[in-house]
Nucleic acid binder design. Structure first.
Lengths: 205, 205
DNA sequence: ATCGGCCCATGACAGTTGTCACGGGGTCCG
DNA sequence: CGGACCCCGTGACAACTGTCATGGGCCGAT
C-alpha cells in the first residue's frame, strides 16, 4: 500500500459498466486503471505494453471471453494477477476460472467497496473468491458432459429441431438424438430444452 | 446547470454496478446521487422522500422490474423524470418504456460519458433515446402475442413439457398446445423453444 | 344483435422426440 | 491383448408435439 499504485487493466464489453468500475477504482489512491478493453482479444499484448499488475476481466464478452483470455494470459504472463468480475455466479465458471489460474472471482452483486479490496488481495498474492460460490462449486461436481454433448446442447439452446442440429454439426440425425438423450440423462432433465438451460446455468455450456 | 444539483435516484440490482454508476455520476458537479435501490419496489416512496428529479432504472430487477416501476411512478409522481439504463437493447423494452412515459432509454454499451448527458437532458425536459434502438423499435411492430400466449411461452422458456405448463397455469394440456401453436405461428418459429427465445429476445416476454 | 376477439376445451392426425438395443470405429491404459 | 471411453450410425417403439377442425363461453365494438 506504499509507493507505486497498482496498475490495473479493465476488460468489459459494456462501455458504461467499464467506465463505472474505472471511476470506482480511481477513487482509491493506491489503484490506477491504466488500460481498458472491450474484449479479451489482445489482452496479453496490452498487459505487456502497460506493465499491468492486475487484470480485471468480465466473462461474457465477444470474440474472446474472459476465461479463455485468462487461460491464455497464464501462458505468456503468469506474473499478472487475474480477477474475474462477472454477472453470473455459475459454479462451472468458477471451476473453469480456477483451472485457468485465476486468483479472484467476484460477482457483480457484491458491494462496490469490495472490488478495490479484491484487487489489493490478488495483487498481494492472496485470493479473492466469493465464498458462497466457492462452496457451491465444490459441491456441484465436475462437468459430466462430453465435448459432443456440449456442442449439441449449445445448438439446442435456441430451440432448433434435430435436423438442423445434425446439419450444423455434420452428423446423422440419429446420432444427434443419441447425444441429446445422453445429455438429458446426465443433467437429470426430461427435455432437450430443459437440459440445455440447466447446463447453461451451471456453466457447462 | 446552475444552483442546486440534479437529485438522482439509482435503481439496479447489482450492487457493484450501482456503485460504479454512482461514482461516475458523482464526478459531475451538477449531479448528486441521493438514493440507491436494489429493486423497483418502494420507488415512489423513495422519490417522494428524497425529492428526486431523475430516477435511473435498470429493467431486469427482482420483485418489481424497472418498466413496471416506471409505469407506477407515472401515476403518483409524473413530475419525476425516468431514465432507463439497461443491458438489453430489445425493441419491445423500448416500446414498453415509451408507453410508461419514460423520457430516456440508454443501453449499457454506450460510452460512460453519455450517461451524465442523458441525465441532464431528461431533467431539462428533453428526451434521451438510443437512436438505433428507436428505429428498430418503430420498425419491429407491435407485440402480437396475447396475454395467455405470453404466459405459456414464459413457462416454455425453461423447457417444461406441456403437462407441467398446463398444471402451472391450471389449464387443459390441449389448450396449452393450442396457445403454443398460435404463438409459434405468430413469431414464425417452428418449435415452442424457438418461439420462446424469439419472443424473449424481442422483449415480448 | 351480430361480429370479432380472446379464452377454454376436445378429438384426431402426422411428425418429432426420447429411449433403447445394437452395431461399428477409434484412442488410451493397465 | 482386453477393457473403458468416446465417437458415429441404424432401427424400432412409445410418448410427446404441432396442427387443424370444431365446439362452447365471455366480452367489447359496430
Amino acid at each position: 500500500m506504499s509507493g507505486e499504485p497498482i496498475r490495473v487493466l479493465l476488460a468489459d464489453d459494456q462501455a458504461m459498466i467499464r467506465g463505472g468500475l474505472a471511476a470506482l477504482l480511481d477513487l482509491e489512491t493506491d489503484i490506477s486503471v491504466v488500460c481498458q478493453l472491450d474484449s479479451g482479444a489482445g489482452l496479453a499484448e496490452a498487459v505487456a505494453e502497460h506493465g499491468i499488475d492486475v487484470a480485471i476481466l468480465d466473462i461474457e464478452m465477444p470474440e474472446v471471453d474472459g476465461l479463455a483470455a485468462a487461460a491464455a494470459l497464464r501462458e505468456t504472463r503468469p506474473d499478472c494477477a487475474v480477477l474475474i468480475v462477472t454477472t453470473f455466479g455459475r459454479a462451472g465458471y468458477l471451476r473453469r476460472a480456477l483451472e485457468a489460474g485465476v486468483r479472484g472471482f467476484v460477482v457483480k452483486d457484491t458491494p462496490a467497496e469490495e472490488l478495490a479490496e479484491a484487487v489489493r488481495r490478488v495483487h498481494a498474492g492472496a485470493s479473492a473468491f466469493d465464498p458462497d460460490l466457492l462452496a457451491e462449486s465444490l459441491s456441484a461436481g465436475q462437468n459430466p458432459l462430453t465435448e459432443r454433448e456440449r456442442q449439441v446442447l449449445r445448438c439446442a439452446l435456441d430451440g432448433s429441431p434435430v435436423r438442423q442440429i445434425a446439419k450444423a454439426l455434420f452428423l446423422s440425425p440419429g446420432t444427434v438424438r443419441n447425444h441429446l438423450s445422453a445429455a438429458i440423462g446426465k443433467v437429470q432433465a426430461s427435455t432437450r430444452a430443459e437440459a440445455a438451460v440447466i447446463a447453461r446455468d451451471r456453466g457447462w455450456l
